[in-house]
Computed example of a mutant assay.
Amino acid sequence: MQKLQFESAWDKTVSKKHRKIIEDAFASTEFLLDDSIQVTSLWQALNHKGNLLVTTLVHNTTQQSFSFQNTKLRYVEDNLVIAEHTFTIPAFVVEPKTSIPWTFIFPKESLVSSTTFQDGDIEIVKEEKSSD
């Protein structure tokens, strides 16, 4: 059974409004039948430096712990890639059958297109296998 967990820093600082949004999103998530890592985008914004901040729920539906190690993510709106960046976040570990809120920060330089930054999705880019 999938459970929602907040990192200690999140648990202390998240507003009641955002906690409700996160809990509602978790409750309405339809998990894929296969063991996988799923990402649900919640909201996004540009900060004062021009970086794209995308707040998500990361769902680990597998039986193993998961962390972002050299993992390429894309922020996509209407099938258009807006930003792409490779993340390594050693301190961020998602335990098996657990969902955790997390904000991914795409550096300004990773933005390849401009948009309204609404209703986008995060995609995990699968490594392409070489055909040697």
Rank of each mutant, 00 (worst) to 15 (best):
Q2V: 07
K3H: 11
L4N: 09
Q5N: 08
Q5C: 03
E7Q: 14
E7Y: 07
S8M: 08
K12R: 12
K12D: 09
T13P: 01
S15I: 02
S15Q: 04
K16V: 14
K16N: 15
H18I: 14
R19M: 11
I21Q: 12
E23Q: 15
E23D: 08
F26V: 06
F26C: 05
S28L: 06
S28T: 10
D35A: 13
V39Q: 01
T40Y: 05
W43N: 10
Q44T: 13
L46C: 06
H48D: 15
K49A: 08
L52H: 03
L52T: 03
L53Q: 14
H59M: 11
Q64S: 15
S65E: 15
F68L: 01
T71R: 07
K72N: 11
K72M: 13
R74C: 05
R74E: 13
Y75N: 00
E77C: 04
E77H: 07
D78I: 04
V81I: 14
E84H: 00
E84A: 02
T88W: 09
T88G: 09
I89P: 02
I89R: 02
A91T: 14
F92M: 09
E95M: 06
P96M: 03
S99P: 05
W102T: 00
T103A: 10
F104Y: 09
F104M: 11
F104T: 09
F104A: 09
I105N: 07
F106Y: 08
K108A: 11
E109C: 01
L111D: 10
L111E: 14
S114G: 08
T115Y: 12
F117M: 06
D119M: 14
I122S: 09
E123V: 11
I124Y: 00
K126L: 14
K126C: 11
E127F: 08
K129H: 11
